[in-house]
Each structure stands twice: as C-alpha cells, then as structure tokens.
Design a protein around this nucleic acid. Sequence first.
RNA 1: GGGCCCGUGGCCUAGUAGGAUAUGGCGCCGGAUUGCGGAUCCGGAGAUCCGGGGUUCAAAUCCCUGCGGGCCCGCCA
Length: 642
Amino acid sequence: MFDEREKRLTSRTLSRIQIMVNVENPWAKFKKQVIKALHLASGQDLSRYLEIPGDPQHGDLACTAAFHLAQQLKKSPAEIAKELAFFDPIQFPLIEQVVAHGPYVNFYINIIPYRRLVVEAIQADGPLYGKTKRFAGKHVVVEYPAVNPNNPLHIGHARNAVLGDTVARLMQAVGYDVTRMDYINDLGLQIAVAYWALKHLDASEYKGKYDQVIGRLYVDAQDKYDEAQVRQYLKLMEEGYNEMASEARKMSERVLRAHHKTHDRLNVHHDLLVWESDIAHSGLFAKGLKKIMEAPTASRPTGGEKAGCVIVDLGAYEEFKQLKDTEKVLVRSDGVATYTGKDIVFHFWKFGVIPDPFKYQPFKSPKARENEIWTTKQQGEEGHYRPADVIYNVIGMPQSQEQRTVYLTLETLGYIKASANYYHLAYEFVTLPDARISGRKGTWIGQSTDDILRESTRRARKEVKKRNPEADARFLRQVAEAVGSAAIRYALLKVAVEKQIVFKWEDMLNFDGNAAPYLMYTHARASSILQKEAAPKTARLSSLSSPFETELIKLLGRFPALILEVVEGIHREVWGTRIELFHLAEYTYALSVAFNAFYNHCPVLKAKTPGLKNARLLLVDLSRQVLSNALELLGITPLERI
RNA sequence: GGGCCCGUGGCCUAGUAGGAUAUGGCGCCGGAUUGCGGAUCCGGAGAUCCGGGGUUCAAAUCCCUGCGGGCCCGCCA
C-alpha cells in the first residue's frame, strides 16, 4: 500500500510548513523549541515521540522517546529521560522547565513570553486568526450532498451536506481556492417516476415545500405507476431537447430550490451545480470513452459473457482480486453507460483531462447573493469552471468500491497525480432506530431535515423567549433560527464520520453540555461583557496569574495549529479517507469550557484592581474573537445576544 | 464464500503508527447567584474498554480467533 501523507508532504512542502508555522503560530513555535531541545540533547529528531499529556500536571508536551531508545542505548528509560531533560533557557525562551518524570520527559510552556505571542497573533489577525496561506494557489473541488431531486433531504443527507460544507470551510482556512460543487442526478428512474406522479396523482392534499410535495407523491406512486409510461419518460429525458424533458428539468430545479432552503438553514452553501442531464447532452461521455479505451486495463470483449461491453479489469489491484469478477462494466452491451462509467468520465472533466463542454448560468436560490451560485445549462456562458488540483467527494461508505474504481482508472491511464489527489470522504449513514431511511418507502416522512429543523427551532424559540421576555418578534425569530439549526449542524459534526448515527430526537435536540447552544451562549456572554465596557488594546498581562487564565491563553494559542493538524491528518485509506473534523468541534467546546470556568472564577468588570480588570477585558476580547472564528469554521453564526 | 466499517459506565462519545490513574457529554446525586446572562460553574457515584487466546517492559490500541450491529461484492444508481 501507499501512505498518502508522505506522498503529499514532499520535502519542499515540509520546509515551507516550518517557515509559515514559525511566523504565525504560537503553539508550533513552542513545539519547535521542544523538538530542537530534544535534538540538542539526543542528536536526533524525536518529534514523532511527542504527545500532549492527558494530565496537565505532566506538562504541555511530553516525549516518550526514552522507551524506544532504551534498547538501542542499553540504558534504562528513566536514565535516558534524565539525559533528554537537559535544556538551555536562553536558547528556548518558550520552555519554562523540562522535567524527567520516570521514563517521560515533560515540557512546560513558559507562559510569560507565550501569552505575549498569543495576544500579538490574535490582535494582528483578528477574524483571520487561525487561517493560513499554506495551500494558496491550489484549487480544491468539494462535492456534496448530491441528493436526488425527487425527495426532501433526510437527516443522512443533512450529515453529508454539513460535512461537505465544513470541509470546504476548512480548506478555505488553509488557503485553498475552493469550489463547493453539487451534482444533481435528474435523469434516473426515480425522476421519471416522480414526474409520472406529478402528472397523474393528486398533489392537492400535500402542501408546503415543493421537495416535500414531490417526495410524498413519489412515495405514493410506488405501487401505482405505469411502467411503460415511465420507461417512455425516461427515454425522452435521456434524449433531451423535447417538451417532456424540459418540464422534468423544471420540476427538478424547483425541488433543488426547495433543497436550498434547507441548505440555507443549515448554513450550507454551493458555488456550482452540475446536472446529469447537461452532462448527458454535452458530448462529454463520448470524449471520455476514447480516453478510457487508452487504458491498458480497458477493453471491449468480442465474445463471452461481456461481449459488446466496455470493461475495465481491476485484477491488478490486490484488494480487487478477492472479487467474484474483477472486470467492471463501464458501458453495457446496449451502448448505455453504467454509473461507474459515467463517474469516471465526470472526474476526467473535474480534473481537466477533458476540456470543459458546459455552458453556465447563475442559479437563483432563495438566499444566495447575486451570481453566487452557477449552474450548468443548455444555454449560457462558457468558462465558469477551473479544473481541480484536489477533489473531495462526500459520499457514503457503501460506495467506496465504486469510488476506488474511479480513481484507480485514472491511475491506470497515467493520471497519477490526479488519482492521488482524489479523496473519497466516506461517511457512515444515519439510520432510524428500527429501519433504514428510504426515499421510496417514505420512512423519512415526519422526520425529514425540515421537520427536525422546525422542531429544533421551536424549542430554541421557547428558550430564547424565556431569557429575553422583552425581545421583539424579529429578534426572537432570528435567534431561534440560528440556535435551532446550529444545534442540528453541530450534532452531526461532532461525531466521527466513520461512526453510524442512530437518529433519536432527544439526542439531536439536546441543547445542554457539548452542544451548539452552549458554544453560542459562551460567545454571547463574552460579547455581553464587552458591550458593557470595551476592551483595551494593551494591558499588563502579568496580572493574569490564575490557572483559569493560563489555561484559556494556552487554548487560544492552539487554534491555528489545530486547523493545520486536522488538514495534515487527512489521509487516504484503501476504502475511503480519514478526516477528523470533530476535532474542530472538540476544540470549540474545550475553549468554551475554559472560558466559562474563567468567567465563573475571575470577575472581570469587578476585578480588584484597574490593571487586572484591563488585562481580563483584553482576555475576554481575545477569547470572543477566537470563539467566533472557530464557530465560523463550524458553520455556526456567532451572535452577540441569544 | 470473499471483503469493509463499528463495538468503550444506563445512553451517546474521545482515545488505535502500543506508553502516565481511559476523554467528554446526557441522565442521576449533592452544592454555588445581593460578582459581568444559572443555556453557567464546582463536586460525587457510575467502566469485565464485546468474549477468548497471543506478542511486549507496557495492549482500548498490534496479531489470531469467536460474537454482535451495519454495509459491499450488478450489463442498478
């Protein structure tokens, strides 16, 4: 196998990282001094043996290298630890002390110069604190959530959308140019059935959002629809350029606008929509097929079971050898492309292997700014797509074999770099306690994302009203909406992507503890102090001596490093990609906990001396800023009052 | 038949290139407000880390095996 992390971090990138980190990242600066100190003591790079101790008593950074060096040096780990614990305070001003604790070497941050660094960094960068230009100039395309336009979003779709949108925010934070893409399959059987239902069933009993209406009709149509008629619709849609196809497209666009209402509530955004019907009528596939045939693994058998098909043989790859049949059909014997075949060609286009055949128009979505969203269309402008350097597809775990087939085919064609920069962000599904969520069976009815948002917002409104009895209706509505939807977004984000979520109302709507309202409340609390008295630009930081203040400052300093760690931690596995997005949630929660502890133990406005008050006001100001930045990264709107 | 993901207090969850008394939340019990918003804070009880073997100075983490839940192995998408 291969290690993507090593592949990606070439020596050139590595040297660049160190320069950047050195300039703007307090935590990295401390860590660098620790690594250097260890190097001086041991003559080697021991950075891989560093860890953050679980118990703060054991320092801010600990080295476990002594265990590993014991055999080599034929000494006891404790002895080695003692030797490693040597350091020079003049050379390493950010290290306060180094203690050999048994076999461990514990490094303690020197808070006096460190907090100076933290204050300066946050004040200099403000809302940009945490962001870097590490990947500037590179273009990443993130695709999500690709919901078929014949259903409203169920909670599993919401998980996909929220993950994708957050990945896009993360990529932006490290300097990528990001295209937030959605792929809309408006050509499948499910659309033909939905269209049939629209034409033949009575929609009058269903009111409300268009996607809900179509979704209900689609469920109703399952045991009623006329197969011959639906087949005819499907054929017309695939041919295109006819009245029926254009009506079906309109239906799908209307459903998509309804989806965008849900996206807006979740703070999920897009730049570019790509429609299957436009791909089908663009001539893209014919060009792509030519490319596919250049692959040494592709062929068109003349005899046997797959006579007349276009196939790709994956037998060269170890993990595909286990399959019953290593030959994957890309074009059926009747000449129709399979899903995998289409997907391979689609990715040729994404990476710029095939010139862009599409025309584009702005897509009007309820809350989108003018020209924010563009869509492929039969008529329109050209040149609204720039090929990707890196691709993230947020697609369910069950499709990992198909996704791997796509990028391995790119590899066999010689597009090694493109293939290596293809990330299938595989996430596990959300299930109901006793069933799968099924669009066809309608198990989503009554618990679609819209329903969950409505209930969440209703509960939030009750809480907001309780705390702001004087507030006007507008304030109530806006805050309830922000808090209610953030709760859902955060609930989906804080769980590791490879973990299945069983949907339960009470889990999703929990507002206490590690949940979005707590984070937002913390931000509002900090803002409330600053409204009563503005923070100074400078203050005597030496008065900040309580452990609550120190802990808070240390956390503030970790934010930029944390973002980079999440991005650097992304690595491909055989089936899917590891990405630890929940670390962003975890950090924001930890920061909130630290701030609330500080708040409850250290009076700010009524501090004992004016100097202390000033210093604490400054600390509140910095905390509010970083909390705000972290919330933005999570797609949660930081409010001054909730 | 082959393969993938998950299994951690009543419930949810972090920790898996081995390392210090296993993280946090919900729920439960007790406490804090004449000090900036109590959607807060402080404390407590609660764990055979799915079972069984093995490797190691050291295993939730690695190996083998079994069990449970979810999923994949289409000329469907």
